[in-house]
Design a protein around this nucleic acid. Sequence first.
DNA 1: CCTGAACCTGACGTCAACGTGAGGTATGAG
DNA 2: CTCATACCTCACGTTGACGTCAGGTTCAGG
Lengths: 118, 118
Amino acid sequence: MRIGQLARRSGVSVRALRYYEEQRLLESARTPGGQRDYPDEALERVQLIQDLFAAGLSSRTVVELLPCVSTGVATPAMLDQLIIERDRIAARIQDLTRAKTKLGHVIENVTAANVAPD
Amino acid sequence: MRIGQLARRSGVSVRALRYYEEQRLLESARTPGGQRDYPDEALERVQLIQDLFAAGLSSRTVVELLPCVSTGVATPAMLDQLIIERDRIAARIQDLTRAKTKLGHVIENVTAANVAPD
DNA sequence: CCTGAACCTGACGTCAACGTGAGGTATGAG
DNA sequence: CTCATACCTCACGTTGACGTCAGGTTCAGG
């Protein structure tokens, strides 16, 4: 599969895919003419990368954790890092939940004020 | 209260406070000498700004929503925006929860593999 | 062989929320 | 008055994940 097709299938831009390769998050074979040629598994990998980015991990962290995420094999240091990242995500979820609740209250108040200005 | 004290009390940097003013998120009176002089309520406001930033809102959005968040009075457009932002946060929480679960599975697998390599 | 689409490699631009340094002023205790 | 802080206004630097443009190459269909 060439880069354009992978981009369309995964929903990320061609530029992003090249960037992933530059950051060593994604490999590609090359055609004799020098064009990237991806195996089908690349699609899953791109989606995994997107998930990790969406979770707020940096590309540096992702490149460190990708091996164990996809193979299930990790050094103790990698395990520590995994736990750190999971906890960071959990804390972030707490923050967002608080913020959501707060906005919810504001919305309620505003709605009440508009609907029943008294 | 001067800027240094507000910074210490709120936990944000002096630079950040000046930035908030530049973005019209925060006002200040001035001493005859030109130094910023904040009322006590500024502390709450800074904390509110931080909460909204932490929720992933941009300063542009915050400046639009701050009035109704602090006064409880909103135009219909502001209410729409509030709902949009709340839903955005909810979606983000979903993403993060999925990612956290995923990382949790990885951690379980890795731990199992390390503890009981069989 | 020809052509248009898709691809290639640089390399500079973007955006947000500040950090940081320069060079000067205000404040308040002694 | 003096001096140490704290403060002031520019204004450029930083970071991450790409966007975008330039200038050239490869591929596939006819």
